[in-house]
């Protein structure tokens, strides 16, 4: 099973003929992702690694039939148009591995996606992987490296940091644990899929026995996750680490979303909310794997 993405998910790559789009298409195909079409206006009729390219997403769907997911390798300033296009074409799951997007464009995309019942991962997400089955975005980087980092298994992983969305699964692997699905939730201050949304997906997934979260200061994602636990929307073991306890108020780091403003979004506040809700908060990321092991064997 896993969530959102598996070996049957049909994928369109928007921006397939660009440098990154083309490189990542090869990686995704090699890993097993069902990439069925690419889109670049003006490049319709060509092929990239054997995958047909179309001018528009609608044209791709007319030619290929159902498309379950889109991944957008589109520069930040042009991303809004691409996401709207995928939504208008009826694609129900979109992953946007792009950063540096104007925040008002992000708000528009997220609002439009929600109005149309579309699940938007990111923007600013490195991507996601269902080990052994499919990957979208940048996560893993190459087949060799992805195979080294991610073993299939029963632990769901949510990370607010791109790099950590590969490192947490690796730490779990060293401890003998595999992954159902791992994803990077995105670094923009406003996101399509929230941490609570993803937990609800993991709750429905039979393969997932527990979830590990690499959290960060700033925003309310972890507080909302705590709420999902408290009101019974997520009932499996949840182990969370929160980075940035040290950070001074108002200081913004390299993630746009990691800023503590007016006392909100502190590590302490997040830890308290999660602990009170019944989740397990660990003091360092190396404690994630042992804690998960203890909880699933209990």
């Amino acid at each position: 099973m896993a969530i959102l993405l598996d070996e049957n998910t049909t994928v369109v790559v928007q921006g397939m003929t660009g440098r990154e789009g083309s490189l990542r298409t090869k990686y995704m195909l090699d890993y097993g992702t069902r990439v069925v079409a690419g889109v670049t206006p003006g490049k319709g009729g060509t092929q990239v690694h054997g995958v047909p390219v179309y001018h528009t997403v609608k044209e791709a769907i007319r030619a290929q039939g159902r498309i379950d997911a889109s991944v957008t390798f589109i520069p930040g300033p042009a991303l809004k148009g691409a996401v709207y296009e995928a939504i208008d074409a009826g694609v129900k799951f979109i992953c946007s591995p792009v950063e540096r997007i104007p925040v008002h464009d992000v708000i528009d995309m997220v609002s439009y996606a929600r109005k149309n019942d579309v699940r938007l991962l990111g923007p600013g997400s490195l991507g996601m992987i269902t080990p052994g089955k499919a990957v979208i975005g940048w996560l893993g980087g190459s087949v060799d490296w992805a195979s080294m980092l991610f073993d299939p298994g029963s632990i769901g992983v949510i990370s607010r940091s791109g790099g950590q969305s590969g490192t947490v699964p690796w730490a779990l692997k060293v401890a003998g644990l595999g992954i159902s699905t791992a994803l990077h939730i995105g670094t923009e201050p406003v996101l399509g899929l929230t941490m609570a949304d993803v937990l609800k997906e993991f709750e429905q997934d039979e393969q997932t026995k527990a979830v590990a979260v690499f959290g960060e200061i700033g925003g309310t994602l972890e507080e909302e996750a705590a709420e999902a636990v408290a009101n019974g929307q997520f009932t499996k073991p949840l182990v969370v680490f929160i980075a940035g306890a040290w950070a001074p108020e108002g200081m913004r780091f390299s993630h746009a979303s990691s800023i503590v403003e007016k006392g909100r979004g502190t590590a302490q506040g997040k830890m308290k909310a999660l602990t009170e809700a019944g989740a397990y908060v660990v003091d360092s990321p190396e404690e994630i794997a042992p804690k998960i092991k203890e909880l699933i064997s209990a």
């Binding site: 607010r160 940091s161 790099g163 950590q164 670094t187 200061i217 980075a243 040290w246 390299s254």
Partner: peptide
Amino acid sequence: GIGGGAAMLGMDALN
């Protein structure tokens, strides 16, 4: 630091 998450981990470690 290398990457936002790692950079925060390192600052927590120094702190």
